[in-house]
Structure formats: structure tokens, C-alpha cells
């Protein structure tokens, strides 16, 4: 089982390698990837350096070019593919039909992974991408229960990758326009969800308020810990009840499921968080390396160490973790 870790910068990439990541994924400094944030990601030169560093350490470089190409900006997506291949990417992570088609025609030997943004959740959709574009691996959206993941693993011949830890996206990825509804920018069109440029914080007599493009996402009392106003994680009102109508601020953590994921043949576990610090990447990679090594050594005896959980909890949104949709009751 491969441990695939995120990097938004060279220091983060180096930490991931030091701590035992088998592969690292990153994005370029533009809207061709789904973490298009200021101060993050890799220039052309840095991609080359990242590839050299990873290959010296016998690790793999995955590059996410996983947003949807704009009709008047196709050259950016084509350039991203050409540049990534030229600079030594081992794998391209892609969602858009146009980009998939371009790669399968021009670079048939480059390993192609279907991004989570393509929302392939069932055998028929997976077969579609396998037959049309020869994708080697599919990254499953975070909407499937562990039972459904196992069913897919039994039925599909393609490699499967799942999200193991990090920010919990509760909607089928690539099929959520809540962010563009509120701000005009979405993961699909701009590579960003709840973009920081639209965030405002304000201390008021009723408490600390977080807003996204003027919309009140949450209001915090004196004792409460405030979180980033991701629009699906605010407290809203439904017929007089105020609660986290969609989801609470929480992170996904599947350490408990590791033996099941290993047993059903999941090829890779992915850590979310290209936007997070090198220290985050270091700690999460370290915990997951230990966990995977323990589990592979003896899945029957595998137990989640309290220290691992504690460490991951400290790095989680709202200091809470969840099994998310993998656990049927969450749904």
C-alpha cells in the first residue's frame, strides 16, 4: 500500500520524503489544480527540482492538473501537462475529459490517475474512464461507505486510492458548486473552495463573526474556538433550529479502517492538505508511515496507538476527527 502525501512547497515535500511517503503530489502555480491558493504550489523550475529530489530517493511524483479547462484558457491546461511530463512527473492526476483525452493521445505512456474531482463512484463510471482514457488508478470520492469501497475493490480491475486523512469534503467532489454560488469561484472553475479573499472576521457584541462574501457563516461565543469559514461547515438556521446543517468543522481520519483497506486491496492512501504547513505534512506522514508499517507487518494485531490519534487530532479542524461517509451512521 502506497502512502501518498501532499506538498504545497519544497520544504513540505522534503519533510514528506524524510518521514517515509512513497509518493508526493503537488500542483502548479495557477488554476489548473484544485488548491489554487496564494503563496502555494510549484513553478516550472521547482517541479523539476521536486522530481529530481523524489527520484534520488526512489519516490514518485504525482502532479494534480485536476480542474476543468476553461474554453478560452485551454493553453494553460495543455502547457501544464506538457511541462509536468517534461519535468519528470511519474503520474498525472486529472478530472477533465479534455485533459484526459489530450494525455491519452499525446502521452499514452504517462501513468494517468483519475482525480477525485471526476466523481467516479461506481463501476460503470470507472469502466468509462478506464476504457476511454486508460486510467491506471481511480481516486474515490469521499462519499462512499467502507462497504461500498470494498464492493468496488472486488468488482474493478483498476487500482483504487482513497482519502485517509485531512479536511473532510462532505459533497461528491467535482459536483459541488456551493462555493461559486456564494463567491463566484468554485473548485471546478477556479481551483478554490470558500476562497480566502472573500473571508472577513469581525468582533461584534454578539461574538466573533466569520463571513464569506458578506454571508454570515458562523458566530462564536467567548469560549468557542473559531474555525475557517468553509461554507458547508457553518451554523445555519432550519425552521428555527440553529445547528451545523451540513457538517461540523471536523477532519477525516481513517486510521481505524486501515486493516480493512489493506485487506480489500486498496492501492494507495492519500493524505489531504497541500495548503497546510511543512510541520503538518511531517507529523501526518510520520503517523501514517508507522501505522501502515504496523498494519502490513501483521494486520490481525494492528491497533491504533493512542499517541497517533492524539497527534492527528491536534492537526484536525476543530480538533475533531470523523470516519465521514466510510461509516454508514455518519450519512
Amino acid at each position: 500500500m502506497e502512502l501518498l502525501c501532499p506538498a504545497g512547497s519544497m520544504p513540505a515535500l522534503k519533510r514528506a520524503v524524510e518521514q517515509g511517503a512513497d509518493a508526493v503530489y503537488l500542483g502548479l502555480k495557477d488554476d489548473t489544480n484544485a488548491r489554487h491558493f496564494a503563496g502555494l504550489n510549484f513553478t516550472d523550475d521547482k517541479v523539476g527540482q521536486a522530481a529530481d529530489f523524489l527520484h534520488q530517493h526512489q519516490r514518485k511524483l504525482h502532479i494534480a492538473i485536476n480542474t476543468f479547462a476553461h474554453p478560452d484558457g485551454w493553453e494553460r491546461w495543455r502547457y501544464a501537462v506538457d511541462m509536468a511530463v517534461k519535468n519528470g512527473a511519474d503520474v498525472l492526476i486529472v478530472a477533465d475529459l479534455a485533459v484526459l483525452s489530450y494525455i491519452s493521445q499525446h502521452y499514452p505512456d504517462v501513468e494517468l490517475h483519475l482525480s477525485v474531482q471526476a466523481s467516479a463512484t461506481n463501476t460503470a463510471a470507472i469502466t468509462f474512464y478506464q476504457q476511454q482514457f486508460n486510467v491506471r488508478r481511480v481516486v474515490l470520492p469521499r462519499v462512499l461507505s467502507i462497504h461500498q469501497v470494498k464492493q468496488l475493490a472486488r468488482q474493478c480491475s483498476v487500482e483504487l486510492e482513497v482519502f485517509a486523512f485531512g479536511s473532510l469534503c462532505i459533497m461528491a467532489e467535482g459536483r459541488c458548486y456551493l462555493s461559486s454560488y456564494m463567491t463566484g469561484e468554485s473548485p471546478n472553475t477556479a481551483g478554490a473552495c470558500s476562497p480566502a479573499a472573500h473571508v472577513r472576521w469581525q468582533e461584534t457584541s454578539q461574538g466573533l463573526e466569520s463571513r464569506l462574501n458578506g454571508v454570515l457563516i458562523d458566530r462564536y461565543g467567548k469560549q468557542e474556538k473559531a474555525g475557517y469559514p468553509t461554507l458547508c461547515k457553518g451554523r445555519f438556521d432550519v425552521d428555527g433550529q440553529t445547528y451545523h446543517a451540513l457538517e461540523e468543522p471536523t477532519s477525516l481520519n481513517t486510521l481505524d479502517l486501515l486493516p480493512e483497506l489493506v485487506n480489500c486491496g486498496i492501492k494507495a492512501v492519500k493524505i489531504e492538505g497541500r495548503q497546510r504547513s511543512p510541520a503538518y505534512v511531517q507529523q501526518v506522514t510520520s503517523v501514517w508511515r508507522q501505522a501502515i508499517d504496523c498494519c502490513l507487518l501483521d494486520p490481525q494485531q494492528y491497533q491504533v496507538a493512542a499517541a497517533w490519534q492524539q497527534q492527528l487530532q491536534g492537526l484536525s479542524e476543530g480538533s475533531q476527527t470523523s470516519l465521514g461517509a466510510y461509516h454508514r451512521k455518519w450519512q
Binding site: 462519499v143 462532505i170 459533497m171 461528491a172 454560488y181 457538517e247 454508514r328
Partner: peptide, 21 residues
């Protein structure tokens, strides 16, 4: 009303404090 997102979670059931199952 624009269809904007799809989830594993049923938000109507959640609004009535019920699990999806």
C-alpha cells in the same frame, strides 16, 4: 432552485435528527 451539490449524507434526514438509514 439550482442543484448545487450531492453528498452521501441526507441533509433532510439530518434536519429531522434521523440517520439516513
Amino acid at each position: 432552485y439550482l442543484p448545487l451539490a450531492y453528498s452521501a449524507r441526507c441533509f433532510t434526514a439530518r434536519s429531522e435528527n434521523r440517520p439516513k438509514d
